[in-house]
Design a protein around this nucleic acid. Structure first.
Lengths: 197, 197
DNA sequence: GCTTTCCTGGCAGTTAATGCCAGGAAGGCG
DNA sequence: CGCCTTCCTGGCATTAACTGCCAGGAAAGC
């Protein structure tokens, strides 16, 4: 059952987030202090840190949920799909799952424009990215010498390369102001990596 | 001509670096304060920040030089080499250029074990990584529809994918304690990405 | 030797982040 | 309704990374 605390918490989170993103857009991420966000959101600094552990989480906090969704979607793809197609299907799902493309665009712009945020974003992602590796591993053909002493780097590399393409596509998409098609860009990136000369 | 200031600066840098890395190895990165490093290195906190702008630069500071070397090497590869081979040649050069593999291993372990450092490492690399894109672009075959309205994402994607493989290989290499061959791992990663099913 | 230049260290201040504690609202129970 | 437990909130103090500022001193140039 959802208690009043949960509900007001959700409202508070949304309000803080709106305030923070507005200020970030107005003055930039670095020139906005936690004190100012707390003041304008009508909350104490201490509580703000309770809602969002760090300043960066105000921007990069929503990642874990999407990652979880991606993982589940990839896992549920038919077994005969290649790792590439399964991952591609997962991203397709994420794209349609997030209902506010303009908010995503705003966040993406902010992240790509702020080096510290960009780095933090990637770092957070690397954490749950590794959880995709065993799922992808299961879809890879058995290596020539199975169960060798050294771990199989293939799944890890595939996942890393796919995310490299996602990042590249997202950056270009954000740079275009959302006018280009994100899925299209991703396909172009992957094609360049896999089929290029 | 090298002035005394330059020489003593170089000595100081080396001494601070040794002190810092020793402390990081002993107590971990997060539990080592700038104050302690400065104290043990016999230098003021203020001067330490003048040598290394940030605490993270004590670990990630040497990157720019390697990046510059990589850029130059890739640029000087024969024109008929594919982007992949040119980049591969660049990494080969870097591997042999750094004369202290055990120091590299120590740094790599520290970076992969410390989220803040990992993020900073990625951030710094993203900066000069983008400078490789035009160099790689020149080696790509002309696209089917040249000079379209949307920028060509291929070079950006190739560079990102190559670095994804480098990272994956480096992480596995560091995890193996340096026992595996880094160049070998890189080739396996790239093969999995480019030739895999 | 004198001047200029540059480096160094100390001090104060800012910002993000954490621990602690008192006060108060929500929820359960007699 | 009154009481008690539980949980949340805000304020205070503190730490740690960093920055600006200024005085003092060593090296460089003449």
């Amino acid at each position: 059952m959802t208690t009043l605390w949960d509900r007001s918490r959700q409202v508070a989170v949304q309000e803080i987030l709106d305030t923070a993103l507005r200020l970030f857009a107005e003055q930039g991420y670095e020139h906005t202090t936690i004190a100012q966000i707390a003041r304008e959101a009508g909350i104490s600094q201490r509580s703000l840190f309770r809602y969002f552990g760090t300043k960066e989480d105000l921007v990069c906090g929503g990642q874990e949920a999407l990652g979880e969704l991606l993982k589940q979607t990839v896992r549920q793809q038919p077994a005969e799909l290649s790792p590439w197609d399964a991952l591609r299907a997962g991203f397709e799902t994420i794209l349609t799952a997030d209902h506010t493309p303009e908010r995503v665009l705003e966040l993406s712009r902010l992240i790509f424009a702020t080096p510290a945020l960009h780095a933090r974003y990637i770092e957070k992602r690397l954490r749950w990215q590794s959880e995709l590796v065993p799922i992808v591993q299961a879809r890879l053909a058995a290596p020539a010498a199975p169960a060798g002493p050294s771990p199989d780097p293939r799944a890890k590399a595939v996942v890393a390369a796919v995310f490299a393409c996602v990042d590249t596509a997202t950056e270009l998409w954000a740079g275009s102001g959302g006018r280009l098609d994100l899925a299209d860009l991703y396909d172009q990136c992957l094609a360049a990596v896999r089929d290029g000369g």
